[in-house]
């Protein structure tokens, strides 16, 4: 039998150095520099009107910030994404779990879910405007539509693919159906569920911005539309970067929640 190996903590400084200076890290930085360089070169050559180079974007950014409208736009966008995503997560996990545990539910729901997954949601947004007008409701529905199918399908796959031995073992020890479901199936499916939530989070941001673009009046999407109509490519870039940051921040938040929830999944050896 193997002998228990020693567990040792790396010093904080060593850990930081390993994180900051590695070959992969250097390549990452180099790639960003190259992209920025090409962008700058093309932008300078073609002019601000066609493609604002990074240096002009910095200027546009301060301009947008001092304009004072940025925060209004961002907060309205964020609220919509948050409400829509939470709804999508609740609906998605519930429906996905139902499909994973009941064969008849899976058979009944599969065609609808598959269709919903392939429909380009952007095509439905104009309908939402016709039905619900221009306030927050249609935007939230757009976010839900964009995110929910991804979450349903991942949860479904996760619950269905739980190693069949685990529920059987639990049952052999006398676990009730509720115990098997709560303590075995649901926990075993968590990695899939979180993968779905992370993809759903990214799609929620897209759903919000596309709704706003088509509304042409509100939020960050609306601001992009305004800037593009005025041929202010620098400002468009600023808003695109803002959206990207929202998306990355949102996905990062999900990852953080995932990491705390799945701590034991990843083998955390903290003594309790």
């Amino acid at each position: 039998m193997a002998i228990a190996v020693e567990r040792r903590q790396m010093s904080r400084r060593d850990a930081l150095r390993r994180k900051l200076f590695s070959k992969e890290r250097a390549l990452q930085v180099a790639l960003v520099v190259v992209v920025l360089g090409v962008w700058q070169y093309v932008g300078k050559k073609e002019g601000d009107f066609f493609l604002a180079p990074p240096t002009s974007v910095v200027g546009a950014f301060t301009e947008v910030l001092s304009g004072g409208k940025l925060w209004d736009a961002v907060s309205s966008t964020l609220v919509g994404i948050a409400i829509g995503f939470v709804l999508a997560a609740v609906i998605g996990v519930a429906v996905g779990t139902l499909m994973g545990t009941s064969r008849s539910a899976a058979t009944a729901l599969n065609p609808v879910i598959s269709a919903g997954y392939v429909i380009p949601e952007a095509a439905i947004v104009p309908l939402l405007i016709i039905w619900f007008g221009l306030d927050m409701t249609p935007r939230i529905i757009s976010v839900v539509l964009f995110a929910v199918f991804e979450i349903i399908l991942s949860t479904y796959a996760g619950v269905k693919n739980v190693d069949a031995v685990l529920p059987q073992v639990a049952r052999s020890f006398g676990a009730s159906r509720a115990q098997v479901f709560r303590k075995v199936t649901c926990v075993a499916a968590l990695p899939y569920i979180f993968a779905g939530l992370r993809m759903g989070a990214a799609r929620a941001v897209k759903g919000m911005v596309i709704a706003e673009l088509l509304f042409a009046a509100t939020g960050v999407g609306g601001a992009i539309q305004d800037a593009a109509n005025a041929y202010q490519t620098g400002k468009v870039m600023v808003y695109v970067i803002v959206i990207t940051l929202i998306g990355v921040g949102f996905a990062g938040l999900m990852q953080l929640i995932e990491r705390t929830w799945l701590r034991s999944w990843h083998g955390d050896h903290a003594e309790r």
Binding site: S172, G174, W265
Partner: peptide
């Protein structure tokens, strides 16, 4: 199933998210 019979399977079916001791603890809970 009942606690008068203890089962060992070909694939042990341990919960990968639980420690060795906690895998036994949850079986005792069941």
């Amino acid at each position: 199933p009942g606690p008068d019979r203890g089962c060992v399977f070909q694939f042990p079916g341990l919960m990968p998210w639980k420690t060795v001791v906690d895998n036994v603890v949850i079986a005792l809970e069941f």
